[in-house]
Nucleic acid binder design. Structure first.
Lengths: 271, 271
DNA sequence: TTGCTCCTCACGTCACGTGAGGTGGC
DNA sequence: TTGCTCCTCACGTCACGTGAGGTGGC
């Protein structure tokens, strides 16, 4: 008789917990090579490693234990190919979901940090890099939606919702007129096919629930007037802090970016 | 008072099962907006969607319900960033595992199909494309390992094991001498950095447990002699059917590929 | 009275993990 | 006698799902 391993040794060799090995025996998934007749100890053998590999490989593919049991004694290449085909879709979906969640986490981390580091009482002119976004919907019709109405309408689409929400106003005038109802609702989505242009922006902040921006539109207008700026492009309202990181909507932090004209004179001054 | 939704309506809006909503209320994770005082029905509101988004976003990141409960009323950007940082590693590992499993499934599917379509009693000359592999270990020393010994020694490395095992003999002579103990053990790993060369191969098959090839080495030698072939390269023994798709080791199917010299005369004849 | 939606509460499920109490051989 | 490894068996865990029995308003 060749070498045989105790449950502890076999557990160490394979990385599978003793409790799991006992459970797998109970449900008939994987049985020890033999039992010691006097003390009833389990004995495993290295000859069983291929049999174990069958079990762990299918486990890893999220095939239920019950199914593995059922096909164990009847497995054929045809059957396993069919099983794989069934599970391919499932795995693919999981893979997509997981990478999506990872993106959500990363972009939210980034925005939260920006919020923490921002001087939220000041207005400033910043050169901002391009940022991928995706358009959720155009906000048109007789009654323009607010952020909350938009969120309510698209609640089903959880994939979209989990990326931070933002608004897009076509001009500073549109923003000033109705800060809470942008012309487009967008998502800060790193895989989005649209872009927030790399450009010079006048940047301000406001705190409050979705759509509430306090007096920031007045302060922005005054700043533009005083500094003789030329706001040219759209206005982005980007929620850096939202329900994910604070309970009280009064603490939501929104960044307002107004694209401005880069004065040619300043440009020339640069090296 | 504005519009309020029944549990069924809210479930439909959000895609979350009624039973889950009830469970989440039980553990204090997510509470309805109000209750009807007479019949005790739950009422939900669209105003709750951000609060729900907080819960589902963290759920999606595999944060335990208990943890979500605990931080719900104390969440701050700092805390959430810390939580994300903790989970980033976890998610990354999952992502890696999942894509690995997908690869395992795909390559196994491919090999199983090849096994099903092969005429296993015939020898043939085939032009085979390059195939990515990875070297598991060199098989050297006084006593050369068999496949089973190798599998036993590397059992802990489940990631490696789940790819199909193959052998690499440096020459047809080495293979004939000891078919069950190759010079290298390799994995059929689509992301491997090594390669089975694209070339013309003499291909045969054998059935049986790891290392058992019956008389195929004799048949290969005879074929080479009769057809005046020049075996130049290594010999690959690739398990197309193994423990994953059949219980009885007698049914394992191994493909033997002997790289042969492509006669220049034949080459010139091609268009 | 009949449907209908909702309610509570207990128990089931899946794949284990834990812990109590006991055994065999050095 | 003391450790040590192993045993069985019952119960716990996590995040729900299911199903029985009952209620309120049309």
């Amino acid at each position: 008789m060749f070498d045989t391993l105790s449950i502890k040794e076999f557990s160490k060799l394979t990385g599978i917990e003793s409790s799991t090995l006992r459970y797998w025996e109970n449900i008939g998934l994987f049985t020890p090579y033999a039992r010691n007749p006097t003390n009833n100890y389990r004995h495993y053998s290295t000859e069983q490693l291929p049999a174990l590999n069958f079990v762990t490989t299918l486990c890893d593919l999220d095939v239920p234990n019950k199914t593995i049991c059922d096909i164990k004694n009847a497995r054929t290449p045809k059957l396993i190919i069919e099983l794989f085909d069934e599970h391919a879709h499932h795995l693919n979906k999981q893979l997509y979901n997981l990478s999506h969640r990872y993106s959500v986490m990363q972009i939210r981390r980034e925005l939260m940090l920006q919020g923490l580091e921002a001087d939220i009482n000041e207005l400033s002119i910043q050169e901002m890099p391009a940022m991928a976004i995706s358009i959720r919907s155009r906000n048109e019709g007789s009654e323009k939606q607010t952020f909350l109405e938009h969120i309510s309408e698209t609640a089903l689409n959880r994939v979209n919702l989990s990326f931070p929400v933002a608004g897009y106003h076509e001009s500073i005038e549109a923003f000033t007129l109705n800060p809470g109802s942008p012309d487009y609702f967008i998502s800060i989505d790193p895989h989005g096919t649209d872009k927030k242009k790399a450009s010079e922006y006048l940047v301000g902040y406001a705190m409050g629930n979705y759509g509430e921006v306090g007096d920031v539109h007045n302060r922005l207008s005054a700043f533009i007037r005083d500094n003789k700026l030329f706001p040219v492009g759209p206005v982005y309202t980007i929620y850096l802090h939202d329900e994910i990181c604070t309970e009280n909507p009064d603490n939501y932090l929104v960044q307002i970016c107004v694209e401005i004209f880069i004065k040619i004179f300043d440009k020339i001054k640069e090296p």
